[in-house]
């Protein structure tokens, strides 16, 4: 399975949750598959999906899912100790780990070589770290939501991309409709 197939499978679970989605193809794919006002698409700033999601989870009670990539987590590796030490039980970090920088042409990341992000997250002090196969992502994600415990999911998948258009929505519109979704009951 590749990332877009995972996103298709988890889209029904994501639909009524607050989702912060990583820059580039992940956001473009999610936007194509199931655009929702409750999706915050990152149009720039590689690496900060997990940080934005944590700040959001710590500031309001709804469930927040940050969708991140292995390359982006490696870019902002300092995020994992911050997450571990600021527990928000309404927060799930879903790392779609295809071992490559998908948006830039599938160059290999260190996560696809010797580095295990699962073990890095554990070493940083994260308490609920679940590594799964891509095909199990939907059920692992649903379990994590139901558990009511902050969870880091590392979903191992194949690298590969589908053709998707860029997001042309204005960033302020993305942010405004997202904030309205945050505030809605």
């Amino acid at each position: 399975m590749i990332r877009s197939e995972i996103l298709k499978e988890i889209a029904p679970i994501l639909r009524d949750k607050l989702v912060v989605c990583n820059i580039g193809l992940p956001s473009q794919e999610l936007h194509l598959i199931d655009d929702q006002p409750s999706n915050f698409y990152m149009l720039g700033t590689m690496g900060l999906s997990s940080s934005i999601g944590l700040g959001l989870a710590l500031s309001q009670p709804k469930t927040v899912i940050s969708i991140d990539g292995d390359g982006s987590v490696l870019t902002n590796l300092g995020t994992l100790p911050t997450i571990a030490n600021n527990v928000a039980d309404n927060y799930i970090l879903l790392i779609i780990d295809n071992g490559s920088y998908g948006s830039t042409g599938d160059q290999p990341t260190y996560a696809g070589l010797k580095t295990s992000l699962t073990r890095v997250a554990e070493a940083c002090g994260c308490e609920n770290v679940v590594e799964c196969d891509a095909s199990e992502t939907a059920s692992v994600l649903q379990q994590a939501i139901d558990s009511g415990k902050m969870t880091i999911i590392v979903s191992k998948c194949e690298s590969g991309n589908i053709k998707v258009p860029v997001i042309t929505m204005d960033p302020v519109v993305i942010r405004d409709r997202f904030m309205k979704a945050v505030q809605s009951s």
């Binding site: 999906s49 700040g55 989870a57 500031s59 300092g78 995020t79 911050t82 942010r175």
Partner: peptide, 21 residues
């Protein structure tokens, strides 16, 4: 919330702002 790097901190702040803080 201490941050490990300032850009990480700005990401946290962006999320907090959208969360109403």
């Amino acid at each position: 919330i201490p941050a490990n790097k300032e850009d990480e901190g700005m990401g946290l702040c962006a999320g907090a702002f959208m969360g109403g803080k």
